[in-house]
Design a binder for these strands. Structure first.
Lengths: 190, 190
DNA sequence: GAAAGGATTTACCAAATGGTAAAAAACGAA
DNA sequence: TTCGTTTTTTACCATTTGGTAAATCCTTTC
C-alpha cells in the first residue's frame, strides 16, 4: 500500500527502512470512490494527501455558480490546499476524487511530528512542493492567449495520463470552455 | 536605496543591523529603464531581483511569435525565473522592465554565501517565495472560464497598482487577448 | 513647433465560442 | 435484460473575439 510513496520519495533520496516504518505509523491509507469529497470548500485543510492511484481535482465555485477545475493531480503527487493548510485558513477550494483513488493521508499534526523526528523529511517535502507549484504555473502559462483547440491539444500532450481518465465535462471546465465547445473541438480534430 | 528591502523583510522578522550590512555588501543596486532586459530568454538565471521601485514583466514568445506576458511583478517582490535559477537550466522566459525601475540584485553565488552566513535568511526567502508562487497561481486561477471583460475587471481590482502603470498592449498580452479587443472592452465599460 | 514613431482607437468582417435545447450514446442499478 | 440517469453529441443562433487595416492620439526628438 505504501510502496508508491517510498518508490517516489527515493527518486530524490534513500529512505532508511526504520524511517519508512515511522512514516507508515503516522499516516493512513484510504480508498475513495469517484465523486467523493476529500476537502470541502469552507473548511480548513488539515490533511495532506499523497496519491498512490487515481486522480484528484481541485475545484472552486465561480460567482455564476459554475464548478471551475483549477487542476488535476494524479499518481505520485502530493495534494492539499497549501494556503489553507499552512495558514490554518478556510479554503475557497475543494478537493474531489475525479476517479476511484488510493490515497495516503498525512494529518497535519502528525506531519509536523514527522518533521521533528526526521528533519530531512521537511526539506524533501518543501522541495517537492515547490517543484509542484512551478509545474502548475508552467502548465497554466502555456494556455495564455491560446484558443480552445490549442489549449485542448496542449492538454492532451502535457497531461496525457489525465486526458483519458476524467470526464470531458471536467476537462472542459479545466480548459475554461463549455462541454459543448469541447465536443465540437474533438469532432473537428478528427 | 536598500531601505525598501529591509522594510519589507522586517514585516516578517527583525533583521539585526549587522546582518543588514552583510546583505548590502553582497548585493548591488541598479536602475533600469523601461524596456531593458534583465534576463534574456535562452540564458540561465544567475540573479535574483528585489524590486524597490517599478514593475518587471515575465515574458515568453509563443510558437506564433507573439510576446506572451506571464505576470507582472512590482514593488516589494522578488523576481527571478525560479526553475532556471535553482536548476541552472536555460530559461524559456525573459524578464523585462515594464517601466523605469530600481532593483536590488542578488547574484546566485553571493546569495548562497548569505544563506551560510545568515541561516534564517534562507528559510525567510523560501517562505516568501512559496507565498509568491501561491499568489501567482491564485491570480491565474481566477481567470479560468471568464470572458475577456471579466478578466480585465478582475485584473483592475486585483492588480490596481499595475493597471495604471503598464501599457494596454502589455495588459492585453497578460490577459490573453488582442490589444484591439482590450480597447473595445474599455470603451464598452464606460 | 514640426516630424517621426509608437500606442490606442475605430471599423469591418470572419471565425470562434457561449447558451439553449434536444437527440443520441454510454453507463449503472435493479 | 430494461429502465433511468448521466455524459456526450449535435444543431441553431446570438455574442464575443480575432485579424486586418486605417485613423487618431500621444510622446519624443530635433
Amino acid at each position: 500500500m505504501f510502496e508508491p510513496l517510498f518508490t517516489y520519495l527515493e527518486l530524490f533520496q534513500k529512505i532508511p527502512s526504520k524511517d519508512k516504518e515511522t512514516i507508515c505509523q503516522n499516516t493512513t491509507f484510504i480508498k475513495v470512490k469517484e465523486g467523493e469529497i476529500l476537502l470541502q470548500e469552507g473548511k480548513a485543510a488539515k490533511q495532506m494527501f499523497f496519491i498512490c492511484k487515481g486522480i484528484l481535482k481541485i475545484v472552486s465555485i465561480s460567482e455564476k455558480g459554475n464548478e471551475v477545475i483549477h487542476f488535476f493531480l494524479s499518481e505520485n503527487q502530493f495534494c492539499t490546499i497549501l494556503k489553507s493548510f499552512t495558514e490554518n485558513a478556510v479554503s475557497t477550494d475543494s478537493i474531489h476524487a475525479a476517479c476511484d483513488s488510493e490515497i495516503i493521508v498525512f494529518q497535519k499534526d502528525k506531519l509536523h511530528s514527522l518533521y521533528n523526528t526526521l528533519p530531512y523529511f521537511k526539506s524533501l517535502l518543501d522541495n517537492i512542493t515547490k517543484q509542484a507549484l512551478l509545474n502548475k504555473i508552467s502548465l497554466r502559462n502555456s494556455y495564455i492567449g491560446e484558443d480552445a483547440t490549442t489549449r485542448y491539444q496542449k492538454f492532451i500532450v502535457q497531461q496525457s495520463n489525465i486526458a483519458l481518465r476524467v470526464s470531458q465535462t471536467d476537462i472542459a471546465s479545466y480548459l475554461g470552455i463549455t462541454k459543448q465547445s469541447l465536443s465540437r473541438i474533438r469532432k473537428n480534430m478528427h
